[in-house]
Amino acid sequence: MAGTDLVAAPPRTTPGSSRTPAARRRLERGALYLVLTVIAVVMVVPFVWMILTSLKTPQDLAATPPSFLPAQWAWGNYAEALAAAPFLTYARNSLIIAVSHTAINLVIASMAGYALARLRFRGSELVFIGFVAALMIPTYTKIIPEFLIVRFMPLFGGNDILGQGGTGWLDTWWALIVPGAVTPFAVFLFRQFYLDLPVELEEAARLDGVSELGIWARIMTPLVKPAFITVALLTFESSWNNFLWPLLVTRTDSMRVIQVGLSVFRTENDTQWAFLMAGTTLATVPMVVLFLLGQKYFVRGFANAGIK
């Protein structure tokens, strides 16, 4: 749509003036808008296609070549998709995990980030280097032993004190929530934000006899609210989108998260594209909305980590 008025833009220049700098600039500008519009369309069309597919009837889906818009808008697909697979249960599980991860990460990582930024204690340098190193560890290098720890967790899921005999944390909320609850990235990001606060504040509070925990909770933390929103959004997003870990540690349908549920639905119902796209829409729309609402913080989070 933006493209059409770009194409219309050049004729507005009076004939013969095409070589003046102003006209050339306008032409350049038109070309710029055109290229950017094409890019934006490529980025967005898959999502539009996803939503349109989710509203098509089986006849529409079988048509070759496919029509872009549904001939008949099948709003009932959503209800039928929810009847075909427990997408709402999957989404609820994902929500519980994402909220838990966010809450735990905010408290624990901000405490750690604050301590690393502001307190000098024995080994603080070493601990910081440890967190930076942890940032570098690929998921795939730690995921197998993580799985083994969960599987052999002593005294859980029928395991004895040595972790034998049962299934440990497999297929439990523990496995889904605990291992991914605190991220080194959040610790790192919080540290960056706390580093920027003036030392005077903290010293004044200390003279007034406020405890270190009190300084963190009541004096410093209210000043880095944007950091909290940023970490909350990033944690929630990556937790909601996570796939491999929940795939590995869950067995029963009632414990599945939305991403795993989608993948299972696809293998079990290979050709139900309308239902699958309805489920996919359910899985993506919350994140897109969250991003649109908190765009400023997402951008700041990524940019901060990158530039400092």
Partner: peptide, 28 residues
């Protein structure tokens, strides 16, 4: 915003959408 949206959506979800786009018979 348009360029950034795929980044915040789950890879599983967008992969499913692309699977459908690449569909040899009815794909976009």
């Amino acid at each position: 915003t348009a360029v950034f949206i795929p980044q915040v959506t789950a890879t599983i979800a967008v992969a499913l959408v692309w699977l459908w786009i690449y569909d040899p018979r009815s794909g976009l």
